[in-house]
Nucleic acid binder design. Structure first.
Lengths: 188, 188
DNA sequence: ACCTGAACACCGTTCAAGT
DNA sequence: ACCTGAACACCGTTCAAGT
């Protein structure tokens, strides 16, 4: 990359980070270009889709959650590890309003720049879930996609003003539901 | 209302119902006016805001849920009544993609044309919840707004393609969580 | 190689001019 | 009274013309 292009890229990236933090993941791309003082075409050259821009901005946070998840896999209690992962995921979306809708859409869309990251994230949760299920602390009738769905739903609630204050409590309710082993028929 | 105005109103209403069923609650208002073959100003005259249009379209469904809720209040099991109400609410949003975001926003916004309907809806759920709590079949640490939040979250999941197929199962999970009485300290 | 911004096809919303 | 559609201020996205 030419040095002027690199400068543009980085300035665009920092500006986008600020604007998206302010206005959420659906902020105007035109506005980002304007505030970065580059032509709109330059934004499209560096980030051909909105997802590509989001991916760049979220990459750090994604990596953070993945790394933590790998650590958590080695921790003593699989149940506690799973709850910690759920907390990490909710925190991720606290920092980035409105990204969960894009992330949800990316799960089944292999063309999306967010696809790989989201699948990887789901995988990290799925592994912790499987461990907790094997341990008997998580209910057996859900999978990694269900888990992602639940976290996404909480994140969505967090974006709705009248519900935001209740996410904490509802997080507890949902965690309870996930962490309660389904009653199994015990043969004597 | 003059007869020509009434005709416009009704045609606009039917067209909007179709377009919103097709494209969801965020369908283009311009498109609705075009398909109804009236000027865009005519749409705004009859429905000054998008919420006003949604309210008109949803009124029937709202009334249906409210009426059912009143009947359910009289039924034998408050717990079963509450679950039935939750099902009704999810069904409401099955028929009207994308309305829950507007409904959520309307809860705290007294200016919204949807405000009254949403508050009434929340009230009907809250009463059923209180009965189930009194009966001991619903957990005591949530209120009507929490209930609406949970239903809204399920409805949102239903709008996300990769999660839609799982809403049934997750409905069960969340219902389980709501219907489990919180363990209380029993004094001997 | 990269940047620019006009151009195109859309929005939501308002309001002067018409009937 | 009511309807119309141009007008305004925005989008996202593309691409010919520039350096």
């Amino acid at each position: 990359m030419r040095s002027d292009a690199k400068k543009n890229y980085e300035h665009l990236f920092e500006t986008a980070r600020i604007v998206i933090a302010e206005q959420g993941a659906n902020a105007s791309l035109r506005d980002i270009a304007r505030r970065a003082e580059v032509g709109i075409g330059t934004l499209y050259r560096h980030f051909p889709t909105r997802e590509a821009l989001l991916e760049a901005i979220l990459r750090e946070s994604f990596d953070h959650v993945s790394t933590r998840a790998a650590e958590l896999e080695l921790s003593g209690s699989a149940g506690q590890a799973l709850v910690a992962w759920l907390r990490d995921m909710v925190a991720l979306t606290y920092d980035h309003r409105g990204v969960l809708a894009s992330m949800a859409a990316a799960i089944d869309d292999e063309q999306s720049a967010l696809h790989e990251s989201c699948v990887r994230l789901r995988g990290s949760g799925a592994r912790l879930l499987a461990l907790a299920q094997a341990e008997g602390t998580a209910r057996a009738d859900i999978d990694g996609t269900d888990l992602l769905a639940l976290v996404s739903a909480l994140a969505w609630l967090n974006d709705q003003a009248p519900f935001a204050a209740r996410v904490e409590r509802l997080f507890g309710l949902i965690t309870d539901a996930v962490m309660r082993p389904t009653s199994t028929v015990t043969t004597p």
